[in-house]
Design a protein around this nucleic acid. Structure first.
Length: 481
RNA sequence: GGCCCCAUCGUCUAGCGGUUAGGACACCAGAUUUUCAUUCUGGCGGCCGGAGUUCGAUUCUCCGUGGGGCUACCA
């Protein structure tokens, strides 16, 4: 039975890079009909915050990435928060066992002393490896220090002469590290909580994780974890390290590259399916050339070996294209709900009071092809919500040249003699008439009318726009010509 | 500095010894559209460098170069 996990630490909002890791774990789980576990790695008590955990949960839910086990859904392999496992004494127990077997030892250096060690090594341009000074202590000395209440950590002892630690990465093939260069790393901090490498291994064993799919930034942790598995006597899971997501400057995607959390993308009006689809193509590609893929299709054709090894730059342009692609086939009815939260107050007030829901839907149908992200709706809908002053502003912003007044007058005269509602087909008919009478080209007739009536040089289908605007609005605007 | 990973159009990528090096985004041009957008067609544009292996290297090996990651009692 395949069991995979996504293990974010709640020290920030759900990051776009984490999402991709979550996505590949999700797809892999579905593909192999296995179980997907969410584990919150909140052992950094300082930086972990409940609101970040909430943001992560929210984001995953919004994206439609559902988990089989986790703090929010339960499961038989809990607790699903590392902090809660600490209380159970699990890590302490394993560490004590290591201590008893001399696989680990107490260390008493202060962080200042360790900083000095590092600085010295750097000054001599030597690779830094922990000095093992505490390993040289006699048992009596250790007992004495412990008895005196001196703060201590527990360090894992890298086995002497262990040689190369080789991980057979599912994506990269064999990756090898010299054990001697690893240094005896801390497994239990002075406050009794486990460090990342230790907690991960203990948890993954406890949760019977079979495949660890995570970011490439964890690749150098892998040999330490392999060693811990050996020490515990457990079989290590398969590892797969995904290429990292880069900013436009080729460095790891971070704050300075702009939006990086899922909630920001949501707030900017990206659709979850578009985001998922785009992310799925960042570092992975199907065997054929299809690119627009639903989550189900993704699961159907996903192949972990098709994941590429090199880092991928996050390309907002392609995401934009994809988002527009996902907006286009939506029904106006669905779109209305999606778009409503993005209407600004003024636009919303006018739009909803001026037009019936049916008309609102007609307008959405008319403009939806022009949307890249949801907030674009404000720009599109403004054609229909402009007040007279706003219309004038729009108009003055243009360089209309001289409008053929003959066309405008003819059109205005026609509108003037209409007594009731204006219909699209009638508008088309008048325009045809004007075309014949003036012997001008379509562009020469329709463009001026559009400009005179909407203040804009372009927009959706003219006759439909004008009929939606209505007789009174058109008259008010046309009477100044 | 050390360790590790990576390297095909500007970007995301296909390629797994012999291909006119394929697709997508972006860009440019044309067609359609009253305009914009959509859509369609076409175009521009790429194997980091050097050795080696081979009849033949984008592909395999080595060395450079370049980029990235890690280098905590963070995860």
């Amino acid at each position: 039975m395949t069991r995979v996990r996504f293990a974010p630490s709640p020290t920030g909002n759900l990051h776009i890079g984490s999402v991709r890791t979550a996505l590949f774990n999700w797809v892999f789980a579905k593909k192999s009909k296995g179980t997907l576990v969410l584990r919150i790695e909140d052992t950094d008590l300082e930086r972990s915050k409940p609101e970040f955990e909430a943001n992560i949960l929210e984001g995953l839910h919004w994206l439609g990435l559902d988990f089989d086990e986790g703090p929010h859904v339960g499961g038989n392999y809990g607790p699903y928060r590392q902090s809660e496992r600490i209380g159970l004494g699990v890590y302490q127990r394993v560490a004590d066992e290591f201590l008893a077997k001399k696989l680990a030892y107490y260390a008493f250096e202060t962080s200042e002393e360790l900083d000095k060690e590092r600085l010295d090594a750097e000054a001599k341009s030597l690779p830094y490896v922990y000095s093992r000074n505490s390993l040289k202590l006699t048992e009596a000395e250790v007992s004495e220090k412990l008895a005196s209440g001196m703060p201590y950590v527990i360090r894992f002892r890298i086995p002497d002469g262990r040689g190369a630690v080789v991980t057979n990465d599912l994506i990269r093939g064999p990756v090898s590290f010299e054990a001697d260069l690893l240094g005896d790393f801390v497994i239990l901090k002075s406050d009794g909580t486990p460090t990342y490498n230790f907690a991960v291994v203990v948890d993954d064993i406890a949760m019977e994780i079979t495949h660890v799919i995570r970011g490439e930034d964890h690749i150098s942790n892998t040999p330490r974890q392999e060693l811990l598995y050996e020490a515990i006597g457990a079989k290590a899971p398969e590892f797969a390290h995904l290429p990292i997501i880069l900013g436009p400057d080729r460095s790891k995607l971070s704050k300075r590259h702009g939006a990086q959390s899922v909630s920001e993308y949501r707030d900017q009006g990206y659709l979850p399916d578009a985001l998922v689809n785009y992310l799925s193509l960042l570092g992975w590609s199907p065997k054929d050339t299809r690119e627009l893929l639903s989550k189900d299709e993704l699961v159907a054709i996903f192949e972990i070996h098709q994941i590429s090894k090199s880092g991928a730059i996050f390309d907002i342009e392609k995401l934009n294209w994809m988002n527009a692609h996902y907006i286009r086939p939506l029904s106006p009815f669905v779109l209305l709900d999606l778009v409503r939260p993005f209407l600004n107050d003024k636009q919303k007030a006018v739009f909803e009071s001026k037009y019936t829901q049916e008309t609102q839907l007609t307008i959405l149908e008319l403009v939806k092809d022009s949307l890249t992200v949801l907030p674009d709706i404000n720009r599109e809908v403004s054609i229909f919500t402009d007040s007279y002053d706003e219309y004038l502003e729009q108009y003055n912003g243009l360089e209309p040249g001289h409008l053929p007044m003959e066309v405008i007058r003819k059109f205005r005269d026609w509108v003037t003699q209409i007594s009731a509602e204006i219909y699209e087909i009638d508008i088309d008919a008048v325009i045809d008439e004007i075309l014949v009478e003036t012997k001008l080209g379509k562009g020469k007739v329709m463009r001026p009318i559009r400009m005179a009536c909407t203040g804009r040089a372009s927009g959706p289908l003219l006759s439909r726009v004008l009929s939606l605007l209505g007789r009174d609005c058109l008259l008010e605007r046309l009477k100044r010509f």
